Amino acid sequence: MKKTALLTMLSFADPDLRAQIEALPEGTAFIGISTTGQAIAVDLDSESPHVLVCTASGGGSTTMLRSLTAQFLHQGAHALVLDTKRISHLWAKALPTVTHRGNIAGIHDALLGLAAELDRRLGLDGDLDTVPRLIVAVDEANATLRRLARYWETFRQKDDPKTSPAIAALEEALWVGRAARVHVIFDGRPQSTVLRGAARELLATLILARFTADTWQVLAPAAGPAPKQRHPQRGRFHVIQHGEVDETQAIRMTDADVVTWFTDPDDPTA
Protein backbone atom coordinates (compact mmCIF):
# COMPACT_ATOMS: atom_id res chain seq x y z
CA MET A 1 0.00 0.00 0.00
CA LYS A 2 1.26 3.47 -0.87
CA LYS A 3 2.50 5.52 2.04
CA THR A 4 0.75 8.76 2.91
CA ALA A 5 2.06 11.83 4.67
CA LEU A 6 2.15 11.35 8.41
CA LEU A 7 0.83 13.92 10.82
CA THR A 8 3.60 15.78 12.61
CA MET A 9 1.89 15.46 15.99
CA LEU A 10 -0.93 13.53 17.61
CA SER A 11 -2.01 15.18 20.83
CA PHE A 12 -4.19 13.73 23.55
CA ALA A 13 -5.67 17.22 23.82
CA ASP A 14 -7.55 16.53 20.57
CA PRO A 15 -11.08 15.71 21.84
CA ASP A 16 -11.87 13.36 18.95
CA LEU A 17 -8.69 11.37 19.50
CA ARG A 18 -9.31 11.24 23.23
CA ALA A 19 -12.83 9.92 22.61
CA GLN A 20 -11.45 7.17 20.37
CA ILE A 21 -8.93 6.18 23.04
CA GLU A 22 -11.57 6.07 25.75
CA ALA A 23 -13.71 3.80 23.55
CA LEU A 24 -11.02 1.13 23.16
CA PRO A 25 -11.73 -2.26 24.77
CA GLU A 26 -10.06 -3.13 28.04
CA GLY A 27 -6.53 -4.39 27.51
CA THR A 28 -5.97 -2.39 24.32
CA ALA A 29 -3.93 0.81 24.12
CA PHE A 30 -3.54 3.21 21.21
CA ILE A 31 0.02 3.75 19.95
CA GLY A 32 -0.55 6.07 17.00
CA ILE A 33 -1.42 6.42 13.31
CA SER A 34 0.58 4.64 10.61
CA THR A 35 1.68 5.89 7.20
CA THR A 36 -1.29 4.02 5.72
CA GLY A 37 -3.69 5.88 7.98
CA GLN A 38 -4.37 2.89 10.23
CA ALA A 39 -4.74 3.13 13.98
CA ILE A 40 -1.91 1.13 15.56
CA ALA A 41 -2.57 -0.38 18.98
CA VAL A 42 -1.32 -3.06 21.33
CA ASP A 43 -3.69 -5.75 22.60
CA LEU A 44 -2.33 -7.36 25.76
CA ASP A 45 -4.68 -10.33 25.67
CA SER A 46 -4.80 -11.55 22.09
CA GLU A 47 -1.52 -10.27 20.63
CA SER A 48 1.26 -9.29 23.00
CA PRO A 49 1.35 -9.65 26.78
CA HIS A 50 4.46 -7.45 27.01
CA VAL A 51 5.87 -4.44 25.15
CA LEU A 52 9.42 -3.35 24.36
CA VAL A 53 10.15 0.33 23.72
CA CYS A 54 13.66 1.11 22.51
CA THR A 55 14.97 4.48 21.33
CA ALA A 56 18.13 6.51 21.37
CA SER A 57 18.31 9.30 23.93
CA GLY A 58 15.55 11.82 23.32
CA GLY A 59 13.63 9.41 21.12
CA GLY A 60 10.42 9.52 23.15
CA SER A 61 10.54 6.29 25.15
CA THR A 62 9.48 7.96 28.40
CA THR A 63 6.49 9.55 26.68
CA MET A 64 5.55 6.18 25.17
CA LEU A 65 5.71 4.44 28.55
CA ARG A 66 3.56 7.17 30.07
CA SER A 67 0.98 7.02 27.28
CA LEU A 68 0.57 3.24 27.30
CA THR A 69 0.55 2.93 31.08
CA ALA A 70 -1.99 5.74 31.49
CA GLN A 71 -4.38 4.16 29.01
CA PHE A 72 -4.35 0.83 30.83
CA LEU A 73 -4.81 2.64 34.16
CA HIS A 74 -7.85 4.42 32.75
CA GLN A 75 -9.31 1.00 31.95
CA GLY A 76 -8.97 -0.08 35.59
CA ALA A 77 -5.45 -1.50 35.71
CA HIS A 78 -2.96 -0.86 38.50
CA ALA A 79 0.68 -0.06 37.80
CA LEU A 80 4.16 -0.41 39.24
CA VAL A 81 6.35 2.31 37.72
CA LEU A 82 10.10 1.83 38.14
CA ASP A 83 11.73 5.19 37.53
CA THR A 84 15.45 4.97 38.20
CA LYS A 85 15.94 8.64 37.28
CA ARG A 86 13.29 9.46 39.91
CA ILE A 87 11.92 12.38 37.87
CA SER A 88 10.81 10.85 34.56
CA HIS A 89 7.38 9.74 35.81
CA LEU A 90 6.37 12.19 38.51
CA TRP A 91 2.80 11.95 37.18
CA ALA A 92 2.67 8.46 38.67
CA LYS A 93 3.03 9.79 42.22
CA ALA A 94 -0.30 11.60 41.94
CA LEU A 95 -2.42 8.52 41.22
CA PRO A 96 -3.75 6.13 43.89
CA THR A 97 -3.54 2.96 41.78
CA VAL A 98 0.14 3.49 40.91
CA THR A 99 3.17 2.49 42.94
CA HIS A 100 6.16 4.65 41.96
CA ARG A 101 9.67 3.65 42.97
CA GLY A 102 12.87 5.51 42.12
CA ASN A 103 15.70 4.56 44.47
CA ILE A 104 17.27 1.18 43.83
CA ALA A 105 16.42 -0.26 47.25
CA GLY A 106 12.78 0.63 46.70
CA ILE A 107 12.82 -0.88 43.21
CA HIS A 108 14.40 -4.08 44.58
CA ASP A 109 11.75 -4.39 47.29
CA ALA A 110 8.93 -3.60 44.86
CA LEU A 111 10.04 -6.40 42.54
CA LEU A 112 10.18 -8.83 45.45
CA GLY A 113 6.62 -7.77 46.14
CA LEU A 114 5.83 -8.44 42.50
CA ALA A 115 7.13 -12.00 42.89
CA ALA A 116 4.76 -12.56 45.80
CA GLU A 117 1.88 -11.04 43.84
CA LEU A 118 2.59 -13.34 40.90
CA ASP A 119 2.43 -16.35 43.22
CA ARG A 120 -0.84 -15.10 44.70
CA ARG A 121 -2.44 -14.56 41.30
CA LEU A 122 -1.30 -17.90 39.92
CA GLY A 123 -2.69 -19.56 43.03
CA LEU A 124 -6.14 -18.36 42.05
CA ASP A 125 -6.13 -20.91 39.20
CA GLY A 126 -7.37 -18.49 36.58
CA ASP A 127 -10.13 -16.95 38.70
CA LEU A 128 -8.92 -13.41 37.98
CA ASP A 129 -12.13 -11.69 36.92
CA THR A 130 -12.05 -9.36 39.92
CA VAL A 131 -8.26 -8.95 39.97
CA PRO A 132 -7.07 -5.76 38.25
CA ARG A 133 -4.56 -5.99 35.45
CA LEU A 134 -1.08 -4.98 36.65
CA ILE A 135 1.27 -2.99 34.42
CA VAL A 136 4.98 -3.04 35.28
CA ALA A 137 6.58 -0.07 33.50
CA VAL A 138 10.38 -0.16 33.63
CA ASP A 139 11.99 3.09 32.47
CA GLU A 140 15.71 3.02 31.60
CA ALA A 141 15.49 -0.73 32.08
CA ASN A 142 19.10 -1.63 31.31
CA ALA A 143 20.45 0.85 33.83
CA THR A 144 17.87 -0.35 36.34
CA LEU A 145 18.80 -4.01 35.91
CA ARG A 146 22.52 -3.30 36.18
CA ARG A 147 21.96 -1.32 39.36
CA LEU A 148 19.79 -4.11 40.78
CA ALA A 149 22.55 -6.63 40.09
CA ARG A 150 25.14 -4.46 41.84
CA TYR A 151 22.78 -3.76 44.73
CA TRP A 152 22.21 -7.48 45.27
CA GLU A 153 25.95 -8.08 45.45
CA THR A 154 26.26 -5.65 48.37
CA PHE A 155 24.41 -8.00 50.73
CA ARG A 156 24.16 -11.37 48.99
CA GLN A 157 25.19 -14.20 51.29
CA LYS A 158 27.24 -17.24 50.33
CA ASP A 159 24.23 -19.54 49.91
CA ASP A 160 22.03 -16.97 48.14
CA PRO A 161 21.41 -17.29 44.39
CA LYS A 162 23.81 -15.38 42.18
CA THR A 163 21.01 -13.74 40.22
CA SER A 164 19.27 -10.87 41.96
CA PRO A 165 15.83 -12.05 43.12
CA ALA A 166 14.45 -8.73 41.89
CA ILE A 167 15.69 -9.44 38.36
CA ALA A 168 14.39 -13.01 38.66
CA ALA A 169 10.97 -11.61 39.58
CA LEU A 170 10.92 -9.46 36.45
CA GLU A 171 11.87 -12.46 34.32
CA GLU A 172 9.11 -14.49 35.97
CA ALA A 173 6.63 -11.74 35.14
CA LEU A 174 7.62 -12.06 31.49
CA TRP A 175 7.13 -15.83 31.56
CA VAL A 176 3.81 -16.06 33.41
CA GLY A 177 2.45 -12.56 32.95
CA ARG A 178 -0.39 -13.42 30.59
CA ALA A 179 -1.75 -16.06 32.98
CA ALA A 180 -1.47 -13.66 35.93
CA ARG A 181 -2.71 -10.53 34.11
CA VAL A 182 0.68 -8.91 34.70
CA HIS A 183 2.26 -7.06 31.77
CA VAL A 184 5.72 -5.55 31.39
CA ILE A 185 6.50 -2.42 29.39
CA PHE A 186 10.29 -2.48 29.07
CA ASP A 187 12.24 0.60 28.00
CA GLY A 188 15.59 -0.25 26.45
CA ARG A 189 17.48 -2.85 24.46
CA PRO A 190 17.56 -5.95 26.69
CA GLN A 191 21.07 -7.09 27.54
CA SER A 192 21.73 -10.82 27.80
CA THR A 193 24.05 -10.21 30.73
CA VAL A 194 21.14 -9.16 32.94
CA LEU A 195 18.03 -10.55 31.22
CA ARG A 196 18.20 -14.01 29.71
CA GLY A 197 17.52 -14.42 26.01
CA ALA A 198 14.39 -16.56 26.26
CA ALA A 199 12.73 -13.99 28.51
CA ARG A 200 13.61 -11.20 26.07
CA GLU A 201 11.73 -12.97 23.29
CA LEU A 202 8.49 -12.61 25.26
CA LEU A 203 8.48 -8.87 24.55
CA ALA A 204 6.36 -9.37 21.44
CA THR A 205 5.35 -5.83 20.48
CA LEU A 206 8.38 -3.71 19.61
CA ILE A 207 8.21 0.09 19.42
CA LEU A 208 11.49 1.48 18.07
CA ALA A 209 12.80 4.94 17.21
CA ARG A 210 16.18 6.41 16.28
CA PHE A 211 17.61 2.91 16.13
CA THR A 212 20.86 1.67 14.64
CA ALA A 213 20.97 -1.11 12.06
CA ASP A 214 22.53 -3.34 14.72
CA THR A 215 19.73 -2.69 17.21
CA TRP A 216 17.14 -3.45 14.55
CA GLN A 217 18.87 -6.69 13.59
CA VAL A 218 19.06 -7.83 17.22
CA LEU A 219 15.50 -6.91 18.18
CA ALA A 220 13.56 -7.44 14.94
CA PRO A 221 15.47 -9.82 12.65
CA ALA A 222 12.26 -11.38 11.31
CA ALA A 223 11.03 -7.97 10.13
CA GLY A 224 13.68 -7.70 7.42
CA PRO A 225 16.44 -5.12 7.04
CA ALA A 226 16.31 -1.93 9.05
CA PRO A 227 14.21 0.71 7.30
CA LYS A 228 15.71 4.02 6.37
CA GLN A 229 14.87 6.71 8.87
CA ARG A 230 14.01 10.17 7.67
CA HIS A 231 15.01 13.27 9.56
CA PRO A 232 14.18 12.66 13.23
CA GLN A 233 10.60 13.63 13.95
CA ARG A 234 9.35 13.83 17.50
CA GLY A 235 6.96 10.99 18.20
CA ARG A 236 7.91 8.96 15.09
CA PHE A 237 8.29 5.22 15.74
CA HIS A 238 8.42 1.93 13.90
CA VAL A 239 6.04 -0.59 15.47
CA ILE A 240 6.70 -4.29 14.87
CA GLN A 241 3.99 -6.87 15.57
CA HIS A 242 3.95 -10.41 14.14
CA GLY A 243 6.86 -9.51 11.86
CA GLU A 244 4.94 -6.62 10.27
CA VAL A 245 6.35 -3.09 10.46
CA ASP A 246 4.30 0.11 10.65
CA GLU A 247 5.94 3.52 10.64
CA THR A 248 3.78 5.35 13.13
CA GLN A 249 3.25 8.83 14.52
CA ALA A 250 2.64 8.22 18.21
CA ILE A 251 0.24 10.03 20.46
CA ARG A 252 1.75 12.65 22.75
CA MET A 253 0.40 12.54 26.29
CA THR A 254 2.03 14.89 28.79
CA ASP A 255 2.31 14.51 32.56
CA ALA A 256 -0.40 17.14 32.94
CA ASP A 257 -2.64 15.34 30.45
CA VAL A 258 -2.46 12.15 32.49
CA VAL A 259 -3.04 13.74 35.89
CA THR A 260 -5.95 15.84 34.64
CA TRP A 261 -7.48 12.83 32.86
CA PHE A 262 -7.72 11.02 36.18
CA THR A 263 -8.36 13.85 38.62
CA ASP A 264 -10.66 16.01 36.46
CA PRO A 265 -12.02 13.75 33.70
CA ASP A 266 -14.61 16.30 32.58
CA ASP A 267 -11.92 18.85 31.71
CA PRO A 268 -12.00 19.01 27.88
CA THR A 269 -8.34 20.02 27.76
CA ALA A 270 -7.17 16.85 29.53
Rank of each mutant, 00 (worst) to 15 (best):
M1F: 05
A5I: 07
L6I: 11
P15G: 11
L17V: 11
Q20K: 15
E22V: 00
E22Y: 06
P25V: 09
E26C: 07
G27H: 06
T28D: 00
F30E: 10
I33G: 00
G37H: 12
D45G: 12
A56G: 15
S57K: 09
G59H: 09
T62G: 14
T63N: 13
L68K: 09
F72L: 06
L90H: 05
W91F: 15
A92I: 00
P96I: 00
V98H: 04
T99G: 00
T99E: 11
R101Q: 02
G102P: 02
L112I: 14
A116L: 09
D119T: 14
G123P: 05
L124R: 15
D125V: 01
D127G: 03
L128I: 10
P132V: 07
R133V: 11
V136S: 05
R147K: 12
A149C: 04
W152R: 08
K158D: 01
P161S: 01
A166K: 00
A168G: 05
L170N: 01
E172W: 04
W175R: 14
R178N: 03
R189F: 02
Q191E: 15
T193Y: 05
V194I: 09
R196A: 08
L202T: 14
T205N: 07
T205Q: 04
L208R: 09
R210V: 01
Q217D: 11
A220T: 10
A220G: 01
A220L: 06
A220V: 04
P225C: 08
P227S: 07
Q229F: 00
H231R: 14
H231V: 06
R236Q: 15
F237K: 07
H238F: 12
Q241N: 04
T248E: 12
R252W: 12
T254D: 08
D255R: 02
A256T: 13
T263L: 13
D267I: 07
